[in-house]
Amino acid sequence: MAENPTEVAVGAGVVALAFGFLVYAGQITGFGAGASDHYQLTASFRSAEGISTGTDVRLAGVKIGTVTAMDLNRDTFRAEAKLTLDGDIALPDDTAAMISSEGLLGGNFVELVPGGSMFNFEDGQVIADTQGSVSLINLLLKFVTGSGDDGASE
């Protein structure tokens, strides 16, 4: 057994630090959170390129949820994302969802833009107004080749 009090104190500090890290990681990932703390919405995108399960859902740049599932709707051929949002955020039912980028080299996230409706979304509803991801490669190709849809043809 350890007779040195310094060894005991350092060991206790390491155990406390490990426990604190586990609690922090559990809060970040939402592990152990009750179902009443969250609600779920579905957003249907023409292109969901760049997002996947675990992608952030943000409102005004602040994370308020995550993408918890991605599926292909075989009838409409659109990507359907299940968004799990914090239960204390009440969004108007005309809120728009769009896939945004953090920058040229940054990752993508789902951005919610609230509307002005008097009524709020309820659990399980569908966001009607969505905008899919924009392909950076397609934009660069249009710029380089000069093929734009400006309506000017000779």
Rank of each mutant, 00 (worst) to 15 (best):
S52I: 04
K63A: 14
M70I: 08
M70H: 01
T55A: 13
I64W: 07
G116W: 02
N120F: 08
G107F: 01
S100C: 06
G11T: 12
E49Q: 13
E7K: 14
V57S: 09
E3R: 04
I64A: 08
A2C: 05
D56C: 04
K142I: 02
G54W: 07
V10H: 06
A96D: 08
T68D: 15
K142G: 09
G26H: 14
K82S: 02
L139K: 12
D88K: 15
S100V: 09
G13S: 13
T55G: 07
E7A: 15
A16D: 09
D149C: 13
K142V: 02
T53W: 06
V126P: 01
A79P: 01
D86Q: 07
T145R: 14
G20W: 00
A43D: 04
S133F: 02
G103S: 04
G103W: 04
A16P: 10
N4T: 05
G151M: 05
E7I: 14
L112I: 01
E111T: 07
V10Y: 11
A97C: 09
A12F: 09
F109Y: 15
V23L: 15
V126D: 01
V134Y: 01
G148S: 13
D149L: 15
E49G: 13
S147Q: 07
A60C: 00
V57P: 11
S52D: 14
A43H: 06
S135F: 06
V23A: 13
G151P: 10
N4G: 05
G124V: 10
V57Y: 12
A152E: 07
L72P: 00
R58L: 03
L136G: 14
G20A: 10
L104K: 12
G32E: 05
A128D: 03
